[in-house]
Structure formats: C-alpha cells, structure tokens
Design a protein around this nucleic acid. Sequence first.
DNA 1: ACAGGCGTTGTTATCGATAACATAAACACA
DNA 2: TGTGTTTATGTTATCGATAACAACGCCTGT
Lengths: 329, 329
Amino acid sequence: MADVARIAGVSPMTVSRAFKLDASVSTARREAILRVAEDLGYLFDSTASNLRSQKSDFVAVTVPSINNANFADTVRGLTEGLKARGLQILLGSTDYNTAEEERLIEQFLRRRPEAIVITGGSHSDRARRLLANAGLPVIETWDLPAVPIGHVVGFSNAAAVRGMVDHFIAKGLTRIAFIGGDVGQDTRGADRRLGFVTAMLAHGLPADRLVAAGPPPISMREGAQAMARLLSEMPDTQAVICVSDLSAFGALTECQRRGVAVPQVISIAGFGDYEIGSVSVPALSTINPFPRLIGLRTADLILQVLDGHQTMPVVIRIEPELLIRESSV
Amino acid sequence: MADVARIAGVSPMTVSRAFKLDASVSTARREAILRVAEDLGYLFDSTASNLRSQKSDFVAVTVPSINNANFADTVRGLTEGLKARGLQILLGSTDYNTAEEERLIEQFLRRRPEAIVITGGSHSDRARRLLANAGLPVIETWDLPAVPIGHVVGFSNAAAVRGMVDHFIAKGLTRIAFIGGDVGQDTRGADRRLGFVTAMLAHGLPADRLVAAGPPPISMREGAQAMARLLSEMPDTQAVICVSDLSAFGALTECQRRGVAVPQVISIAGFGDYEIGSVSVPALSTINPFPRLIGLRTADLILQVLDGHQTMPVVIRIEPELLIRESSV
DNA sequence: ACAGGCGTTGTTATCGATAACATAAACACA
DNA sequence: TGTGTTTATGTTATCGATAACAACGCCTGT
C-alpha cells in the first residue's frame, strides 16, 4: 500500500480510503489510485485490515455434513443474504459429532467472526461456554433448543413428524414404522424419531416398529437395508416414515426390487423435500422445512443484530410444510 | 495475551509459545499457562498471529456449486487431507459463472491463503492474472486445462465420455443421444458433450442427437424434461448419455412414467457415480471420476508444495472408471 | 574448572492496514 | 466580509501476536 501511495502521490491513508467504497476521496483521485494498484498488481491485505479495525467480515457456519442438500441450501441462503454486506462464510462440517463441533467452534472463534451459525441445539458444555462468552451473535438453526445460547432460527423436528403420523392415522393406517434417528449424535434425527413415538402413543398406538439405520448421515443404501429388515421382520407394516428423503428413497427402491407396491401395500414418507422425492416414481410424501429460508432468515437476523436493531435474543420459528404425494395413501 | 502472561507470571512471548505445540516451553509452565488462559476465557487471536507470521492457515477453494455431491466429496477429501496440518478450507461457490469466480478469487486472495484450489480450467483473463501473480500454489481440478496456471489434479471429461460411447457402440447401439452440456459456462459439461460428439464422429456415426438441458446445474427434473423431448422428437433413440447422474436419473423416471423399458428399449448412462445411480432401479451405468480422491490428492500436493518438496508445476491425472450397470445393455 | 551446547525465557521491533485526530481548502449563508 | 460547515487529505499511534535476537542457567565432557 505504501508503494501504491508513493506512485499515486498520496498518503497511504488516502489509498486505504480509496479502497473503501463509502469513504470520502475525490473521484478522480480514487480512480487514479485504483489504476496504480491494478498496474502494480497490489492486492489489499484483509488480515492487516481486520486486525486494526477489529472486524473480520467472516460469518462462521457449522453444519453436520457438507454433503447434504438440505444444509447446502441453508448455506446458500446464508451466502446470498450476507454477500451484499461483504460478509464471507467460513464453513465447517462437524460430521454429526459434538467433539468435532467443539474443535471447529474454537478454531472459528479464533478468527473473530462477526457472528456464528451452528446447526442444531445440542453441544458440548465447553462449546456452549465458548459461544456464550465469545461476545458475538450466536444463532442455532434447524432446531428449537430448550435453552438457546443466543438466537434461534429453526423448527420442531418432532412436531413436523407428528404431523405426518397424524396424517397417516387419519387415512386409517395404524401399523406405522420409523426408520432412523437411532443414534444419539444426530439430535435432529433423534427428535424426529421422538416425534413419531409421542404421536403414536398419543393416538393409543404402539410405537414399537422402530428400525435402526446406523450412525448419520443415513444414506439411500442404508434406507434400503432398513426397509429390507422391516419387510422381513414386520411384514404387516402399513406405512413407514424415514428420517430423511434419502433413506425414504432407498426404502422405496427396496420395495421396487421386492415387488412390494407403494403406496398400495405400504406407504412411505421422508423428510427434507430433497429433489429426489419430487422426481422419483412414485413421488415421495415428505416434509419441507424450507432449508434455504432458514439461511435467508438467519442472514437477515445477523444483519439486524450487527446493525444494533436487534439486541435481545430472538427465536424465529419456521413452519415446515407437509407434502403428501404419491408414495402414501 | 498480556493478561494471561501477567497472571501466569511470564512474558507474553512465553504465552505465545505455549500455544504453539512444537515450541520449547517447559511442560509445567505450558500447562499452567493454558490453565490460566482457559480460566480467563482467553481465546487466541489468529488475525494478529496471521499478520505477524505472514501465514493464514487458509486454503481457498472454489467450486461451481456447493450443492453437488461430487464437489462436496472433493471438498471433504481436501478437508481431511489438510486438517492434520491445521489448514482450514475457505470455501466459495461460483454458480458456474466466471465473473463470480473472478470476484471470489480476488476476495480470497486478499485473505492471503497458503494455496488456492479452483474447479475447472476456464477462467476470466483477470482471474488468471490474479492467480498467476499471487505467488502461491494454484491447483486446477476436475479438468485438464490446455494451459494450466499452476498445478493440476484432474481428468479428461471428454475422454471419459468417449469411453462410454465406445462401450455402447461395442454393444451394437448406434442411435445414441446426449443430454446436457449445451451452455458454455459449464466447461466440464461442454467437454463431456464434446467427448460424445468426437467419439460418435470417430465411429462414423452422426452426433446429431444433442438435447439441451439449460444452464447448469442440471437437475433431475431438467433431465426428465430433456428425456421427454428426446422421446417425442427422436423416438428411435437406442441409448442416451447424460451430463450427470442426476439428469440421468430424471431421464430414467421419465421413461418409467411413460412405460419405456430401461434398458430393453433405451439404455441410459450418467456421469459422476452419485449414490442415486447405485440405488435406483435399475441401477445407472455411469462414470466414476473419484471426486474424493481428487480432493485427497490435491491436499497431498499442497502439503508437498508448502514443504518445498515440489517446486515445479505438476499434472496429476485421475483415471475415471466406467461403471456398467443395469440401465444399459 | 571451563568451553561449548542445549533448553528455556525475555526484549524489541514489526507485520500492513486504519481509527482518531488534525488540518487545509472550498463552500454556504447571513 | 466573516463565521460555520463540509469535503478532502495527512499524521500518529495502534490492533495482538511473533520473528529475531539476546541471555541465562544447567549439563556434559575433557
């Protein structure tokens, strides 16, 4: 920057100002400075800027898995909503593991992000402490934590699944199974499973058709395997709700391989409104939690908080939508 | 850090050293310092460290889309390969757009990453200039650029598709179509389409069954729509190669909706070896470009270069694998 | 007993930008 | 014409860590 200043015949401070679009520099001079900078191949150093101004222009985001269309949609919404302000996403995946999440959060906080967005509401004690003491906006998403750390943009996974159970029961189905959500680390999956159990019990029906699918992320293949077990162990099952559309699609393919008619013999529902569910034959009944909207709302909230328009922690509830399609009666 | 030093009764320099695991500090003292730091809730400030040491511990990565399992796998491979060295991924998506890519690259370079990984070999002139002058390792992936900027970890998209065409022709199919790759921005898609055309011409067959699928990313739904057009406009087509497994699956579902038997009436192949292709009924023939391996190899290369073990630009070729499954004869 | 080496700790200057303050020139309005 | 205000620029000190160098104590071997 000193070189640019010397050649442009101004002080470094003026060069610095020329790079901030809102600062007061005469237009002619700004253009001259930017031209010199481009000629010299000078590239602004954010690190120094960040140190002095105590702003990083980072928003840290943790997701369980980067390879998941739902979370990817949330990240896209976040990115879009924050881009205009020049905020950059610092993305990390926890692999559905709270220890890894803690490690990631600590690493992120060292970079002094403007805000941090974490998926889910279940964290290690130390992670909670780190977040609470970091003195920056914390937003938990994709869940409604009982005791939020800061802000929340989420929905009740349990309530969403209850809606699907209610729908099935209203259609006269009673022997309903649930695939997945059996391993504790994936709290959203566990919450969906819990929603299934409570809804069944509330209707006076047994909630004993629980099929384990293993540790998250649960793949299509694991959904198919779980369905295979379900069909052989409890062949009179009338409907099955899966922890995600991916496992639901896997389950559907297993039915196809075995010649079990969907939905005539068994109804299938998923979760997440992945594209596969709307394209498959038959199309999958599912629940749309509006992942992109979660990202957009979170971005809005962050901007509000950073502008001081929102000082108290808020809970923004997203209302998931039940989508009944061909895979269920 | 000064506070920690004072309370621990040492100089700030010793505190600094206590946080670098390899620096020489007596074990007792290091533990005492770390304890004080934890008690005070002190969090190391990477920004200041980065400025003084002129290292960011960032590796910048651009992908066309974050919501794509193939690229996500590459990013996972990269993350895994770099984690042990404490290198953090700075991820951005270009939306298959070179202007956006240029913007992203400039933004990334300001953060002074240790290396930069970009998907594809086609970039704006200014982006090329920025990368070439940035004085850091540049790795282009998922392609074999004619004139690389620096290092390359990739494969020939055209050659991979040629292999599939050869396979179809060896099976006696001659009326072969290609879906996608029609919009210039997605150079990998265009390259796959080119591979199709050159292979057909090399066999003396017409390469006129080219179906447009619109701008990338090409969804399952767009694959289905393209297949609908193909079936109505060129009903005697014997085989179709799609630009990705997603569009191939969409095409398959369109056949299912119309009662067109796959592969008895028409063979379908995709690209990318997405999970959907191995689970769908019938399973999809496809090409596996080993996305995760690309990430791992790239990570290895970065470490080699940063350690000075590799100073000349290298080209690491990945050999895609042809997977013939139930969707093709 | 002493030179040389190693492990541990401290001191000083610095990375590259910018906040805060100061100042000069241009302009407005009574 | 003089005072107040705005706009454009410069000066100085600083953000929080660490590289580079210095120094001290302790051990080793001769």
